[in-house]
């Protein structure tokens, strides 16, 4: 999995490419937590355009980051979600707590 992070307008944008399962969950958690801790931002935008597959390990690690940033008074937004991933977001209830945006631009305007 390819994970890139960039801070823009006080928002940590994380772009993911690959399959989000238990094999990459630890790396994802480490990279995102390091970027949050070093940049001091509390808003997280996940761009999942490159994610074709997710399972409960992937959802769990996203939920874990949601808990982390909300405890800092921040927010998590998601953009670029593909249909199979969107179904699991809906099915697991994660969709109720994490806002979906049509694009990175729209998400940044939302914060």
């Amino acid at each position: 999995m390819n994970i890139s992070t960039i801070v823009r307008q006080g928002v940590l944008i994380v772009r993911l490419d690959g399959e989000l399962d238990m094999h990459v969950a630890d790396e994802f958690r480490r990279k995102v937590d390091d970027a949050i801790d070093s940049s001091g931002v509390k808003y997280l935008l996940l761009n999942l355009k490159g994610v074709a597959f997710i399972d409960s390990s992937g959802l769990g690690v996203i939920l874990g980051r949601y808990k982390k940033v909300t405890s800092l008074g921040g927010k998590v937004l998601v953009t670029g979600i593909r249909p199979p991933v969107a179904r699991l977001f809906e099915f697991s209830g994660v969709q109720k707590i994490i806002k979906m945006c049509a694009s990175e631009t729209e998400a940044l305007a939302n914060l």
């Binding site: 969950a25 958690r29 399972d55 409960s56 390990s57 769990g60 939920l63 874990g64």
Partner: peptide, 17 residues
């Protein structure tokens, strides 16, 4: 049901559904 807070405890729920 999960032994780990980073996990959702949805593994068996997904298998079943």
């Amino acid at each position: 049901y999960s032994s780990d807070p980073e996990r959702m405890g949805l593994g068996f729920v997904f298998m079943e559904s």
